[in-house]
Design a protein around this nucleic acid. Structure first.
Lengths: 208, 208, 208, 208
DNA sequence: CATGAATGAGCCTTCATTCAT
DNA sequence: CATGAATGAAGGCTCATTCAT
C-alpha cells in the first residue's frame, strides 16, 4: 500500500519541495497553506509532516536550497585563477545565473523571505553573510592591489548585493531574456566599485 | 463639544500610527495584531477601527506615509538648478536621509511590505515606479548629454534603487552614524552609472 | 444649546421612531444599527439612548405601536351594530387597512419580529392574543347563532389571522393597489369560516 | 482507510445538522453560535467548517431540507388521479404532515427564516414560489371547471399558504395532537376557496 | 439635554498540527 | 509509511452601550 518502490523517500521529499516552492512563490509565505502544498504534491496533508517538521522549516529549507546552490556555484567559478576583479565579476555572474535558473525559488528568497518568520530571516542572514564575505574579501584585496579605489569593503559588498537583488526582482516580474541585461548589470557593478571596464573584458559576454 | 482632552482627533490617529509602526516593525505584518497595536496606543481594540478601516489599510497608510515624504523631499531638493548628475545625486541623498530619519517606517517599507498583502504590494509598486521614473529620466538625460555612457536607463535606475535599499537595510540593523556611509553610497552610485567623481563635488559632504 | 423650543421632546422621539421604522424595515432587526437610526434621525448616537433604553425596546415599541393602532381601529369599527359576521368582516377590514397604511411598520411586525429577541416575540404574542380573542369570540358567537357551522373558534381565528398576514406580506412586496385585493381576501375569509356571501354585502366594497 | 468510527462521513454531517436545527430553533438564527452547534454535536468548532462553508449556508441547507421534503411529498401525493379539488386537498395535507413530522425544522423555516440573511430569504422565496405555483394552478383549474367560483388564483394560493403556516405555528407551540386539527384546517381552506364540502370527502380523515 | 468618541465583549472563520486507522 | 478528518487556539472585526464634555 503505497508506491515505496521507486522514488519512495527522496521522490516524495522533492515533490513536496517543488510544490512548496510554487505555492510559496504564488501566494506568499503566509497565504500559502500546508494543505495546498500537499495537494499539489498529490499527497495527504499529514504526509507533509512526515518530511518536514513544520511549514516554517519547509520554507527555510527552500531558502537554504537556493543559497547553497548559489554559494556552491560562486565558489566553483572562482576556482580558475585571474585577477581579483575577474573573480568578483565571476561571482556576480554566478549569482545572477543561479537565481535566474530557478525563478520560483528566487522569488521566494528575494520577495517572500522577509515576510516569514524571524527564524527564517536569521537563517537567511547567515547565508547572505557568507556571500557578502566573499564579495567583501575580493573588494578589499582589489583595493589593496590598486585595482579599485580604497573604501569600505563591507558596505560596497552590500551595495553590490542590493543592486543584484533588484536586478533579479526586476527580471522576475517580466519574464524576458536576461543575458544582455546581465552584462549591463556587470558593467554597472564594475564601474560602481571603481574598476575600469577593460579589466574584465576577457570572458566576453555571458552565455547562458 | 469635540477636542476631547486636547489633541482629540489627530492625536489618536497619530498615536495609533506610531504604535502600528513599532509593532509592524518589531513583529512583521502578519505577526502584528490589531489588539497589540491598540494596547500600545493605550486604546481599546475597537478604537483602532475608528481610525482605520482595517489592519491592512493601516499598514498601507504607513507605507504611503514614508514614500510620500520621500517623493516630496526628492522633488523639493531637485528644484535648484545644476547639472543632471547633480540632480541625481541630490535625489539619492534625499532618499537616504528620509529613510534614515524614520527608522521604524523604513524597516516596514523595506522589509515588511513584500510580506504583506498583494494590495499593499501594488500600492507600493505604484509609488516606487514614480521614484524610478525620476531617476530613469535623469539617467537618460545624463547619457544624452554625454555625462555618462549610454545604457538602459530603466535598469540602471532600478540598480541604483536596489543599492540604496540595501544600504538602508544595512544601516537599519546597526544603528550607527550614517553621514560618512552616505558619502560612500553616493560615490558608489555615481561611479556605477559611469559619472566622473568631480562632476558632483560642488555640494561637498552631506550634512545631516 | 439645542432646539428645545418647538417639538423638543416628543418631536425627537417621533423622529427616532420614524427613522428606526425605516431602518428596521430595510435592513432587518439585526442588521439595523443604532448608529444608522440616529443618523437618519439627524441626532447623535448617544441621543438615541435618551429616548429608548435599548435597541430592543425601541423595536418593541415600534411593534406595539402598530398593533395598538390595529386593536384600536378594530374595536372602533365594531362599535356600530350589525350581525356578528358583519363585525367580523369589519375587523378584517380594519386590520388590513391599518397595516396597509403603515407599510414600514407592517413589514417590521410581519417579517422582522420573529427574527428579533424572545422578549419582543412574547410582547408580540400578547398583543396578537388580544386580536385573536376578538376574532375567536365573534366566530364562537356566529357559530352559536347558526350563522356559520360549528368548529374550533380559536383555530379558525388563527387561520384567519394567518391568511391576512400572508395577504399583507404579499401586498407589501409589490406595492400595488389593495382595495380590490382586500375584497377578495374578505370573501375568502368569509367563505372559509362557512358564512354565506350575502351575509355581509351591506357595506359594499372597501373604500380606502 | 476512511469510515472513521462507523458512520464517519454522513454521520457527522447529520449530527451537525441535527444540532444546528435545535440550536437555531431554540435561539434563533442570530443568537445561535457556531460554537454551540459544534458543542452540541460533540465536535470542535473547526469541524463545523468541514461540513458547511458558513453558518449561513448551514442554515440555508436546513431550510431547503424541509421544503424539499415538502415539495417532494406534495408532488408524490398528487400522482393518483382525482378531481382538482382532491389534489388540492392532498397538497394541503402533505404540507401539514411534513411540517408536523419535523417540528425542529418547521420552527426554523416558519419562524426564523425571515430573520436570517437576505440570501436565505431569497432561497426560501424560490422554494415557496414552487409550492405556490402548484396550488395556484389547481385553483385556476378548479375555477375553470366550475368547481369553485372564479377569482385571483395567485392570491388565493397565498392565502391558503398563510393559513397553513399559521396553523403550523399554532401547533408548534402547544405540542398537542394534530389529526383533528388538520381536518378543521382542510375544511376551512376548502370552504375558503369556495368548494363544497362533499367534493373531497372521499379520502376520509387524515391518518398520520 | 445633546454629543460622539471610546469601549470591549463576542463571534465567525482559518489553518498548522496531530493521530487513530 | 500514508491518510485526512478532527482539533482548537487565535485574530480581525462589529456594534450596543456608556460617559466625559
Amino acid at each position: 500500500m503505497g508506491k515505496s518502490g521507486r522514488e519512495g523517500q527522496a521522490g516524495r521529499q522533492e515533490a513536496l519541495l517543488a510544490a512548496a516552492a510554487r505555492v510559496f512563490a504564488e501566494r506568499g509565505y503566509h497565504a500559502a497553506t500546508v494543505a495546498e502544498i500537499a495537494r499539489r504534491a498529490c499527497v495527504a496533508t499529514g504526509t507533509f509532516y512526515l518530511y518536514f517538521p513544520s511549514k516554517e522549516q519547509c520554507f527555510a529549507q527552500l531558502v537554504a536550497l537556493l543559497y547553497d546552490e548559489v554559494l556552491h556555484e560562486v565558489k566553483e567559478r572562482r576556482r580558475g585563477g585571474g585577477s581579483v576583479l575577474v573573480k568578483l565579476d565571476r561571482s556576480v555572474r554566478a549569482v545572477l545565473q543561479c537565481f535566474r535558473q530557478r525563478r520560483d525559488l528566487a522569488s521566494i528568497v528575494l520577495l517572500q523571505a522577509s515576510g516569514a518568520t524571524k527564524a527564517v530571516q536569521e537563517r537567511l542572514d547567515t547565508i547572505e553573510a557568507e556571500l557578502l564575505h566573499l564579495l567583501a574579501t575580493d573588494l578589499a584585496e582589489a583595493a589593496q592591489d590598486g585595482l579599485i579605489p580604497p573604501g569600505d569593503a563591507d558596505l560596497r559588498a552590500r551595495l553590490v548585493l542590493g543592486a543584484m537583488r533588484e536586478a533579479l526582482v526586476y527580471g522576475l516580474r517580466q519574464s524576458g531574456e536576461s543575458a544582455a541585461e546581465d552584462d549591463e548589470v556587470r558593467r554597472f557593478l564594475l564601474w560602481a566599485v571603481g574598476g575600469k571596464a577593460a579589466a574584465v573584458e576577457e570572458d566576453g559576454a555571458s552565455t547562458s
